[in-house]
Design a protein around this nucleic acid. Structure first.
Ligand SMILES: [Mn+2]
Ligand SMILES: [Mn+2]
Ligand SMILES: [Mn+2]
Ligand SMILES: [Mn+2]
Lengths: 218, 218
DNA sequence: AATAATTTTTAGTTAAAACTAAATATTTGT
DNA sequence: ACAAATATTTAGTTTTAACTAAAAATTATT
């Protein structure tokens, strides 16, 4: 597997897990910041290698083999993110670019020792679950803050948008994973909300509420 | 800088530090397991980039810029080796292949945080000095065991051969960096020696003695 | 000094991964 | 249902980093 092939397989995995439909050529091109014609070339190659199912003009889906590879890359990406934050004291908005490189290092032993060294973490710094050696992953039952009615309460467990801009906004406003958030009031007109976070009241826009995942207690 | 360019620059650095003469095309091809014609192509490219001085048929030397890049790669390689041994409990004969990949990760912040996290080590697991951020490196005054006369004493500080075979031999015979070695007797006929290592007497062949570096106390 | 051996470079190919422009298929709107 | 818009593929080109085979330069040997 080349670095480029790995990035394509990972992109298809991330795009595909949202819907059940096949992933379109243009969607992949967007995600990878490349041209659709380059994507078609790569899809033909990945199909020949048995990593994707490709029907002309119908998009692609990952084969079981392709999905296993995608999960192993996601595993490596997220474990390295934990390393960068927990051990090297990077902030959560700085880790993505470096993990994007580290995820391609080839060594079974390295990644399994790293996993142990980090204490077998279950989620990365953005609250995303880390696949096991065998590709199993805990499905977290989480909801976007914007979907919650007034008076509800939850624990912040992840972010949808992982851009530096958003993560820094959260840091600035004292919102971190693990914090308890309660919805005090919803403004249906613009989707904004009044919330309490660790006891402090703040007002947040729809944009923010649409990108914060909460775990809701039973 | 591409991964391939970095590996070439590093190879030229390692080949060049032994002698004062320029490094030959064939020597580079050997080191890189590639063909001389491929080396010539790359040397022309590196010369255009200002990393090497290249006179046709006369070999190459690194420019100051090229040397600085080589040292930064060596720094990364050796720091990652320390990480693998100290933190992930790899043995010193397993780290090279993985460090060969990790040395190409691009992030100033990553390598400087790693340096701090490891406690600013001065040598790697094979006793080789780690260049500073600015490319400065402690020159260790070390001698090969084979050069020492009978009755002399020294501390094992490095290995010349870093092959798995040799490193495992040392492990098996209880020879590690930091150990005190005294030469009890030399057999000039075959170059073998009787030595005491941490009090225990053993007999070693010329091959072994020619690949162990010792620091000699004043 | 001339020839032989070795080293290095040049010329021409190949494969991976990107691109542009053009052709073809699918989807959408009337 | 048909034309227009959009999505996808094909064809042909570029760049990087290899390769082989042949030519040229250097070094060694007689
Ligand atoms: Mn990547
Ligand atoms: Mn993440
Ligand atoms: Mn390398
Ligand atoms: Mn080393």
């Amino acid at each position: 597997m080349t670095l480029s092939e790995e990035d394509y397989v990972k992109a298809i995995y991330h795009l595909g897990k949202e819907q059940s439909a096949p992933v379109s050529t243009n969607a992949i091109a967007d995600q990878m910041s490349t041209k659709p014609s380059s994507v078609t070339d790569m899809m033909i190659k990945l199909a020949e290698k048995g990593l994707v199912n490709h029907k002309k003009y119908q998009g692609v889906t990952l084969t079981d083999h392709g999905k296993a590879i995608a999960l192993s890359i996601v595993r490596k990406h997220r474990l390295w993110e934990v390393f960068l934050v927990d051990k090297l004291h990077f902030s959560w908005d700085e880790v993505h670019e470096v993990a994007e490189q580290l995820e391609h290092i080839k060594s079974e032993k390295l990644i399994n020792h790293l996993d142990k060294y980090l204490g077998f973490p279950e989620v990365d710094p953005h609250g995303d679950p880390i696949p096991s050696k065998k590709g199993e992953m805990k499905k977290t039952v989480k909801k976007l803050l914007i979907e919650l009615p007034a008076k509800s309460i939850g624990i912040c467990v992840g972010v949808k948008d992982t851009s530096q801009a958003f993560l820094r906004f959260l840091d600035k406003n004292g919102i971190a994973l693990g914090d308890t958030i309660s919805v005090l009031d919803r403004e249906e007109f613009d989707g904004s909300m009044q919330i309490a976070i660790n006891g402090i009241e703040i007002h947040i826009s729809q944009q923010i509420a649409a990108n914060l995942f909460l775990k809701i207690p039973e």
